[in-house]
Nucleic acid binder design. Structure first.
Lengths: 150, 150
DNA sequence: GTCTCTGCAAAGGTTTTGCAGTAAC
DNA sequence: GTTACTGCAAAACCTTTGCAGAGAC
């Protein structure tokens, strides 16, 4: 824990470590408020602005991955490895999909390389996000936004 | 104009037609406020909420494409055809990139198909968005957020 | 001892909503 | 005549910021 933080040039603090371990426990796709509420429920005593601050810091450090949820809300994923998110328009469920292989490399890399060659821009790892309908949609109740493995 | 609207089941109105023609004029990547201000400058008399309403309606109808700009702001693109956006972290410039071809089909379709087969979800056309640094970054002044052809 | 992080509360910016009036069909 | 769209203002929403105090190094 401390080591993970130090490795990214971050100081240790109780809230920060708690947030980090929260994402380590299982794969999650959660909003800042989810993190805040979940941790409060467990008796952790931290503030919402600290959660926001640390989600930013941790995703800039590459420990978490930030992406856009439904309704203009940011979501965070504890799995920083290359994968895609499919978000259900109806239930808000998030499904992780590993990158398919193209030309012998993960699609991400293929795309990054192709675009850099075509444009002359320096581009970051592509974040690919799709909207769709989960098999639960249309029948089931709205989900809680955090679903399925990362 | 009227026909484009009717084809999507939308009524004609002056603000709506104005917004639509605004996107038709040249390729743009603009925020709701940009649309509003540009049109006001031209003497059009519409309200900001009307702009928001119509940008939503038009992008749901598939006439415009909505995507996430820098700073949690939505941007709209008058070009609904499959292409990707590369957004400069520093200048906010937006560059369009056509979809590369994989397996004989545009990457979008390849990805959609692959993911549908892998997951059993019904997914929409992938929206691919990349962050990066434009060749102007680091030296030049911050851009205006609307750059380059769609 | 210094520098970063926390917590609180308040502000910020974008987008949505309610409602009465108006225009399209 | 009915239904949808507009405009205005207010509200809602998520996120960031300022500052004093506490904690990590």
């Amino acid at each position: 824990m401390r080591d993970t933080l130090r490795a990214h040039g971050l100081r240790f603090s109780r809230p920060r470590a708690t947030i980090l371990s929260y994402f380590g426990e299982r794969d999650r796709h959660v909003s800042a408020e989810d993190v805040y509420l979940d941790l409060r429920r467990r008796g952790e005593d931290l503030s919402l602005s600290t959660v926001y601050l640390n989600l930013n810091v941790l995703s800039e450090a590459g420990v978490l991955r930030e992406f856009q949820g439904t309704g203009g809300q940011k979501l965070y994923d504890g799995n920083p490895s290359p994968h895609y998110h499919v978000i259900c328009r109806e239930t808000g469920e998030v499904l992780d999909v590993p990158a398919p292989v193209v030309d012998g490399v993960p699609l991400n890399q293929f795309l990054k390389r192709t675009i850099e060659e075509a444009t002359g821009w320096e581009v970051e790892e592509p974040r690919i996000q799709l909207r769709g309908r989960s098999p639960n949609a249309g029948a089931a109740d709205p989900g809680d936004g955090s679903t399925s493995g990362s």
